[in-house]
Nucleic acid binder design. Sequence first.
DNA 1: AATTGACCATAATGGTTTTTTGGTCATTTC
DNA 2: GAAATGACCAAAAAACCATTATGGTCAATT
Lengths: 189, 189
Amino acid sequence: MDRRQEILEAATKSFSLFGFKATTMDQVAKIANVGKGTIYTFFENKEDLFHEIAFTMIKQMKAEKDSVINEQMSFQENAHLVLMKMLEFRESHVLLSKLIAEEKEMQTPVVQAVLVKVEREIVHYIAEHIERAIEKKEIRSVDVQLVAYLLFKAYMAFAVEWQVTHEEPLPEEKIVAVFRDTIFKSLHV
Amino acid sequence: MDRRQEILEAATKSFSLFGFKATTMDQVAKIANVGKGTIYTFFENKEDLFHEIAFTMIKQMKAEKDSVINEQMSFQENAHLVLMKMLEFRESHVLLSKLIAEEKEMQTPVVQAVLVKVEREIVHYIAEHIERAIEKKEIRSVDVQLVAYLLFKAYMAFAVEWQVTHEEPLPEEKIVAVFRDTIFKSLHV
DNA sequence: AATTGACCATAATGGTTTTTTGGTCATTTC
DNA sequence: GAAATGACCAAAAAACCATTATGGTCAATT
């Protein structure tokens, strides 16, 4: 297998396990079974390596989203499916969870920047879909940016933050129901 | 003016300016123009003083809300007015913003506990009003807890978090409009 | 030409001293 | 004599500094 890929996989493993700060280049080199110098023939520096991996993660999220979207179905159904996929993704994607945790307990600027980028990207995807739904006249014309932001934040609130103040997580059905009954309902043409 | 009140005002000033951890009792004493010992004749300790101030803040918010609420008007109109009041109240929320910032950058357990309490309290108020509106058949029957939580989180997202990723704050009219067009709209009976 | 790991400057760590701070209480004040 | 005070103390935080670890380089090696 090519060395570049091995390095990427080793680094992904390490970032997922220890986070950005606690991952050392020596460690990555050891896991990848290459000399440390080799890493620098493929990547500018640690940050560059990290960005490439974060970018891959974002691409994966987009791919997961696209695999679920069905142009035949309604905006509401698609949105529901995508939200569920995201929920699943967050739990399964160790790297993302680790980064969210790292950002929370120590403010690593590099990590913060990446997470802001992830947020932008997700909101952007949502906005695109809203835009398309408006064009298809599936939903009313609304301020796309704001509604996309609202959907994202509401989703994060129920799926992630809820647990903080109410020990048990909110069951998926409830999350889906409240979205259906409030925000989505209001978007009906 | 009575000393207790002077101490409370001095402490409020200091907590708002520097947060809980960075506020020292010496400082509060100096601002309040009292000896440090005097503080301890009125308050058990720093935490107690802080709790009293946080509680006052919650009461103030409730008072502002009640001053605006008009039982004759519809839920929508009242909700709109309260939302506006809260937004305009933002400056006097300096303390709240400061605490949110402090909680984010260093995890002060005392601050975290207070913020959880504030959240609970506000969500509780919102829930009460929703409940009443449902009884009056002004709005559809919905999961009161979840909708109250959604309203609170959406408000915080637009009024507080928006600035983090989009340097400029979101103008009030836009915030009001998006609430009107999405969540409130969906609650129509 | 690609790979490597000893090497270096810098940053992080950890242990220790110094300073600050929450809280007390004997003394002072009114 | 009740209320107020600030010097005082133990404990916690900060500053300091020696030591280690780490990101990144590059002459030697494959």
